[in-house]
């Protein structure tokens, strides 16, 4: 990733681990609070992190979540080993989901995760290799500026 970060942290997420799903997002949230970032920004990023984490828990085997804090933005990369996403454009749409009934009984799996990530971030890139894994890269700006594109 680009440039010198002020702060960097890497966490691991395990697939199928519903008992602990959400701990990475809450840990990152505690770190960002310690850094004294604005609470609205921490909230947006934490919602994105939680949805990304639950996607790893539901669909992938394992992942690393990297947080990089720069002077003007925070970047997160969630890279998993898993089945990948064959049709990213389909998966990005609200309501589109391959979740099972058991996943929905856990409060996720209504096809709102990726749209929630999109809505709460200023940049989002989804890359996926079927049979290999999926990488999400997103960022929130700590100082107002126009979104790219």
């Amino acid at each position: 990733m680009d440039g010198e970060s002020l702060y960097r942290e890497t966490l691991r997420i395990k697939g199928d681990d519903f008992e602990h799903g959400g701990e990475a997002a809450t840990q990152v949230k505690a770190l960002l609070k310690q850094l004294g970032l604005p609470s609205t920004l921490i909230r947006r990023l934490s919602i994105a992190n939680f949805e990304a984490e639950m996607n790893v828990v539901m669909y992938a085997r394992e992942a690393t979540l990297d947080v990089l804090v720069y002077p003007d933005l925070i970047r997160v990369e969630v890279a998993d080993r898993g089945p990948g996403i064959a049709d990213i454009a389909w998966a990005m749409q609200e309501g589109h989901s391959t979740a099972t009934e058991a996943m929905r009984a856990r409060g996720f799996g209504a096809g709102l995760g990726l749209p929630n990530i999109q809505r709460n971030t200023d940049e989002l890139e989804v890359k996926s290799d079927v049979g290999v894994g999926t990488t999400l890269r997103y960022a929130v700006y700590t100082t107002p500026r126009p979104k790219p594109g």
């Binding site: 602990h20 959400g22 997002a25 949230k29 934490s46 856990r106 409060g107």
Partner: peptide
């Protein structure tokens, strides 16, 4: 207010303040 009793409802409340 929820009918969900899993750890995720606590994490949800936490991340969403």
């Amino acid at each position: 207010v929820t009918g969900l009793a899993s750890p995720q409802m606590v994490h949800t409340a936490e991340v969403a303040d």
